[in-house]
């Protein structure tokens, strides 16, 4: 279905297996390894550090509790954990109607407060197929997908931020997904 696990994926999967077996140290290692990525994503979606901290806690509680159900068919470990965190954040944002209105820079003060921010971008696998397929989208389709996936923005948020009609935003996202899907399927 997708690319083989990398060495990093294997290490994360092993830590998840440790969590499933009740090894608290495995969870601590996992937290050390992946919390900076999850926290960065949560701060971007939630815009409030205190809220992001709460959701990060909930996400790790859920990761610990659900580690026993993780298996290869659930996707790469990082994507599996990121999804747990993102869905919680999206639920919170939608419920509180505190969707981000102005995007997409990270509040500088928040980054300073955190102290140890690495200068590197996330160590995510660059997948040639994905890059090629992403490049086939129109710039506005790409931007919409980016705002939704990375910023957690709703259709309405994206329409406001980009100054476009809601209907246009919906159809760009729909067509963007369709193009990505057919391109990725063709290159699988």
């Amino acid at each position: 279905m997708s690319a083989d696990l990398t060495a990093e994926d294997e290490a994360l999967a092993a830590l998840l297996a440790g969590c499933a077996a009740g090894d608290a140290y495995a969870l601590e290692r996992l937290y050390r390894d992946v919390s900076p990525l999850l926290f960065a994503a949560l701060v971007r979606i939630l815009r409030r550090r205190s809220l992001a901290e709460e959701v990060l806690q909930e996400a790790f509680v859920a990761i610990w509790q659900r580690a026993g159900s993780y298996e290869r068919s659930k996707g790469r470990p990082m994507a599996w954990m990121m999804s747990i965190a993102r869905y919680r954040a999206i639920d919170v944002v939608r419920r509180e109607r505190r969707a981000p209105l102005l995007v997409p820079e990270l509040p500088e003060s928040a980054a300073d407060e955190a102290g140890a921010e690495s200068a590197d971008a996330l160590p995510l696998v660059r997948e040639a197929a994905f890059e090629r397929c992403l490049a086939l989208l129109s710039p506005v389709q790409r931007e919409c997908l980016q705002l939704a996936f990375v910023g957690g923005s709703s259709h309405g948020d994206i329409a406001r931020v980009t100054g476009n009609a809601l209907g246009s935003v919906k159809s760009w996202i729909r067509r963007g997904l369709e193009s990505l899907r057919s391109c990725l399927r063709a290159s699988a």
Binding site: S35, F39, V43, G75, A121, L124
Partner: peptide, 24 residues
């Protein structure tokens, strides 16, 4: 799962952010 995996590269614009020490 298809999308959760495939869309992950979009997140690479984010910079890792160390959570505060009181979270763990």
């Amino acid at each position: 799962v298809f999308w959760e995996e495939r869309l992950m590269p979009l997140l690479r614009e984010l910079k890792p952010l160390e959570p505060p020490a009181h979270v763990w």
